[in-house]
Every structure is written in structure tokens, then in C-alpha cells.
């Protein structure tokens, strides 16, 4: 092979950098563009880049969930809402206000602080050989053993959300 001098890890790293830059750029655009519609589309691009990063790091289940739920569900919902409210979709909105410089100052401080603690903490990550069947099988097993209680509580959260949604849109009692 001609490309044998490129090892697999380097390619992974390159792809990661590519999607990381894409994610940060589209996230910045979400909060700076003036059209709500464009903002929603950039949000979709951001979520896709994050999904791609999940795939790169072998978290294929998370990647699929990310695409299904966020892009398939949330973004479509946002687009519907934007399109149905014509007053919003046709107008350009200033996303910043007069507080933007103090906010920038605070954010840069936070950025420096977080960068410092992350770089000095010596995070190693958790190297673990993938089990047979990949991460999906692992997640399935964990949900039924160690994380069985949060799994069940999550269903109660959904029940609460269901009743809540009914309250907010339903008719009044007769």
C-alpha cells in the first residue's frame, strides 16, 4: 500500500480534529447568525459533528441515538416551530445585547480556568478493550444490572412528562 506510512491512530486523530473544528465553528454560528432558520440548521450541523465524534471513538450506540433523537426529533421539531411561526422565521434577530463585553470577559476567564485544570489534571481516559458485540451490548447489560434503578426511574420521568404535556395542551375540565 502506498499509504502504509499513515498509521490508523493518526487518521483517527485527523478525523477527530476535523469534526471538532466543525462542531465548534457551527456552535459559534448558532449563537451569532441573525436568522433563526439558519441557526437551527447550524445546530443540526453541530449535532452531526458530535455524532461523528461518537462514531470515531467507537461509541456507535451513542452516535446513532444522537442522530435519531437530536437531529431526527429535536431539530425537526425546532424547524417546524420556526416555520409555523412566520413572524419569527422572516425576521432577523440580534443575538447579542449591550452586556456582550462583560460576558466575553467572564467567558474567557472561565475558558482559561477550565483549560488550565483540564491540562494539568493528567486525564488518561479509560482504555478498555471493547467487549464482543461492541458498546451497545455493554450498555444493554449495564442498564439491566448496575443501572437498573436509574433505568426504571427514567420511565417515571417520562410518565411525568407525559402527564405534564397533557396538562399544558389539554382542554379544561368540564
Amino acid at each position: 500500500m502506498i499509504f502504509s506510512f499513515i498509521n490508523g491512530q493518526l487518521i483517527t486523530y485527523g478525523f477527530f480534529l476535523l469534526f471538532a473544528v466543525a462542531a465548534i465553528a457551527s456552535a459559534l454560528l448558532v449563537v451569532t447568525v441573525k436568522s433563526v432558520m439558519h441557526g437551527a440548521l447550524f445546530l443540526a450541523a453541530f449535532l452531526l459533528s458530535v455524532a461523528a465524534m461518537f462514531f470515531i471513538f467507537d461509541a456507535d450506540f451513542l452516535g446513532i441515538v444522537q442522530i435519531l433523537l437530536y437531529i431526527g426529533g429535536v431539530i425537526v421539531l425546532i424547524l417546524f416551530a420556526v416555520m409555523l411561526t412566520s413572524r419569527v422565521s422572516s425576521r432577523l434577530i440580534q443575538q447579542t445585547n449591550e452586556q456582550k463585553f462583560p460576558a466575553l470577559l467572564v467567558c474567557s476567564f472561565l475558558f482559561c480556568l477550565l483549560a488550565y485544570v483540564l491540562l494539568t489534571s493528567g486525564l488518561k481516559g479509560f482504555e478498555r478493550p471493547l467487549a464482543e458485540g461492541g458498546i451497545t451490548k455493554d450498555i444493554g447489560r449495564l442498564l439491566m444490572t448496575i443501572y437498573v434503578l436509574p433505568f426504571e426511574v427514567a420511565s417515571l420521568v417520562l410518565l411525568g412528562a407525559l402527564i405534564g404535556a397533557m396538562v399544558l395542551v389539554g382542554k379544561k375540565d368540564e
Binding site: 426511574v153 420521568v157 411525568g160 402527564i163 405534564g164 389539554g170 379544561k172 375540565d173
Partner: peptide, 21 residues
């Protein structure tokens, strides 16, 4: 009064459970 009492009560009981957790 007469404003979705059933849903209201169910939500209150569920939120109590959530806070206990």
C-alpha cells in the same frame, strides 16, 4: 377548582417521589 384536578394530583404525588429519590 375544577381545573384538571386529576392531573394536578398525579403530578404532585410524582414530584414528591422525585424529591424523595
Amino acid at each position: 377548582e375544577n381545573n384538571k384536578t386529576g392531573e394536578y394530583t398525579a403530578l404532585v404525588v410524582l414530584v414528591t417521589l422525585g424529591m424523595m429519590l
